[in-house]
Every structure is written in structure tokens, then in C-alpha cells.
Design a protein around this nucleic acid. Sequence first.
DNA 1: CGCCTTTACATGCAGATGCATGGAATAGTC
DNA 2: GACTATTCCATGCATCTGCATGTAAAGGCG
Lengths: 162, 162
Amino acid sequence: MKRKPSTEATAAWIRLMRVQSRVLDCVEQELKKAGFPPLAWYDALLELSRAPSGELRPVELERQMLIPQYSTSRLIDRLVDEGLVVRRECKMDKRGQFVEITEAGRELQKRMWSAYSAAIEKHVGSKLSDTDAAKLCMLLDRLGCSCGQAAPLAAGEGAAIR
Amino acid sequence: MKRKPSTEATAAWIRLMRVQSRVLDCVEQELKKAGFPPLAWYDALLELSRAPSGELRPVELERQMLIPQYSTSRLIDRLVDEGLVVRRECKMDKRGQFVEITEAGRELQKRMWSAYSAAIEKHVGSKLSDTDAAKLCMLLDRLGCSCGQAAPLAAGEGAAIR
DNA sequence: CGCCTTTACATGCAGATGCATGGAATAGTC
DNA sequence: GACTATTCCATGCATCTGCATGTAAAGGCG
């Protein structure tokens, strides 16, 4: 065996994969059981609701959410179908567009947050003291910068997901 | 706002989701670029190669890997197609079967490990001291037991993934 | 033994995802 | 200003996933 990664590093890798998978599943299941759409919808709505005038370029959404371009495009399609956002043309750059959140979108985002926050509390908050949570953050942050940097998160209601 | 989860807990949740997503992507991409199949294949092959006589019931694989039943079933289909495992009938329980790893399967598992371990070292090991990696493990482990317990991992080559 | 429940695995179908590509507009270069 | 490269977004196609359901074999029970 190569023994390149220490057993500690390997163990950390395994935990990282398994624990997030389990915790994410739990949270997603609770949202779904409460009749809500997938978390990715929440993330998008949150980013939009935080934007200056409730609108963002798809490209920015893509960078915020760390998902591929085509995935963003189709996510927006679905949000439009549900009346949660609308596409607007972008006059300064005719090949682009703006995506603007609607009132229905803002409302859903808020309703989801109450279920979402409860799930976070149940599956994360209740298992870690605040100082341990902070330690966990710092350790995770060190793993953050290797293949393209992601945007830092503002405070408040938490976005997430791939 | 509800303020149920502390900001620390929420931040930890966000990091957990984002960091694992990024790190996993990086590792999967490296494996793919080296011409290897998805990590899930590795996990399955590893579990099988560790099993007493190189064979496992699909149900056990399912529990080890924390993936749904139908997913296991189809994963095995693909491994069979590639000649990495074979299905054997189970005489003691006629509705069941055994899945046995082939020589080609064992070989692929070993070849994958060298690329896989290098990727773990690059994206995890090199960014964390051993003691920090150990701390990270302990913190993550506390998040582990909420909706059905997973099997603990043996040492050695690391399995992972959803 | 009949009968019902549970366990093990497979699969049809709809929806989601990855990948490659396409089209349209802008930016950069000479 | 023509030409090429790049950016922004959409989409066809193959694959993968989730969900529900199906089939076959145990297991439990009177």
C-alpha cells in the first residue's frame, strides 16, 4: 500500500463523505415530507431574495450555488414553471438575462426556512455546542480552496448544497 | 426569523455541504481523468475484496454503502457487465444471491486506490495536520447518529460516498 | 398444510443529470 | 470594420436516479 494519505486524513475523508450524505438526506427528507421542493430551489430563491433588486444573472447564480451551467439553466426553467421567478431580458448584454424572484418566490423561501432551520437544528445544532460548531467550521474551511474558489457566505439564513 | 439554529450551527451546516461537495467533485474528477469509473464502483469493489471469500449478499453491500436497494441492484448489473464481479446463486436462501469479486475486480480496485489515495492526499491530507484531521473526525462523528446507524469503517483503504 | 406477512432482489417509468454541442452576442485584435 | 475568441445561455441525447411495484422465496401461525 502506498500510505500516502495518513490514516487520519483518510478517516477524515470518509467521515466527511458519509456524514454529509446522511445529514443531507435527513434534512432533504424532512423538507420533502413537509411538502416542500428540493433544497436547491431554496438556495436559488435565497440568493435571489438577497440580491439588491431581487434579480441576478444566471451566471451569478451558478457561481453562488456551485452547480454546472446547464443545471442552473434547467433549475430556472422549473422555478419559472412554478411562478417563483421570472426571466427578464438584459438590455446591457443582449445574450444574457436577469432572473427575478416573484412574491410567491419570496414567500416560499420564507416558509421553507422555518422547516429548513428546524431540520438544521435537529441534525446539526442539537448535536454540537456552538464552540464545537465553530471549530468544525474552521477545520472545514481549510479544505476549501483547491480547484476554483467559491464565494463566501453572508450571514443569516443558510444556503448550501452542491 | 426563528433563530432556532445558532449561527454557528448554520455555518457548520453550510460548510459541511459546500466543502464536501467541492472536495468530492475534485476527487471524482481526478479519478475520471485518470480513466477510472465512479467512486461508487471502488467502494463496492473494496467491500467485496475485504469480505471473507470475496463475496457478499447484495443486501450487505447495500448496508455498507448506504445506498438504496435498487441502486445496489443496478450497480451490480454494471459491475457484472464489466466482468468485475459475478453473481452466484445462494443455496441457503433461494431468493437471494451472492456477488463475488473477480480477479479483474480486485485488480481494478488496487489500481484505483493509487489514484484515489493520491487525490485524498492532495485534497485532504495536504491541508490538514494529522491531529487536525483527527479532530475533524471526532466532530463529524458526533453528527453521525440520527436516522439509522451506519456501519463503522475498518482501517486501510478508504471507502466512502453516499 | 393453507394463509398472510416479511425479506430479497429486479424493473418500468418519469424525472434529473452529465456531456457535448449549438446559437447568439460581446470582446479583443489587427 | 472584418475576424477570431470568448462569454452566456439553451438543448438533444444518453445515462442515472427515485419511486412504486412486481416476483419469488422464506418465515410465522392457526
